[in-house]
Simulated scan of single mutants.
Amino acid sequence: MLQDLLAWLHLVFIERFDGWVILGLIAQAMFMMRFVVQWIASERVGKSIVPVAFWFFSIGGGVLLLIYSIRQQDPVFIAGQGLGLIIYFRNLWLIFREKRQDPSL
């Protein structure tokens, strides 16, 4: 049983490790950073907020994860990241439109 687990871990994390896995790991790290940014910003003001950087990390991580999922031919991640990107870009558009209407923001 332990031997099977070790063989599986070796296959997944050593034998299959290539540039695409590196891209996927970078993408996942970017995607995770949006939560770190949101947490730090919320802690600073003492309430839950979503800073603009959250949406930029969402787009960066989402684009890279979409590229990775297309390469891996994973329909679940392709659909999820594709829809997510529409939402992230829309949120940025709404933020920038609001700032244009009220430059004091």
Rank of each mutant, 00 (worst) to 15 (best):
L66E: 01
F13L: 15
L9D: 02
W55G: 07
F77P: 01
E15R: 09
V21G: 03
Q72W: 00
A29L: 14
F89N: 06
G46L: 14
R71F: 04
W93E: 09
L66A: 01
A41M: 11
L11Y: 13
A79V: 12
L2R: 09
D102T: 09
G19C: 03
L66F: 11
E15P: 08
F17A: 15
W20C: 08
N91Y: 08
Q38H: 04
L65F: 01
G62S: 12
L23C: 05
D4K: 10
L85N: 12
L2V: 07
F54T: 08
I87N: 11
P51T: 02
A79Q: 05
V21T: 14
I14S: 01
P75D: 12
D74C: 06
L66M: 00
V21S: 08
V21E: 14
I78P: 02
L11F: 10
I14P: 00
R90A: 11
P103S: 13
W8E: 14
G80A: 15
G80Q: 14
V12G: 04
R16C: 11
A7V: 05
I95N: 03
V21A: 11
M33W: 02
Q101R: 15
I26F: 09
F56A: 08
S48V: 14
I59G: 08
S58H: 07
I67K: 00
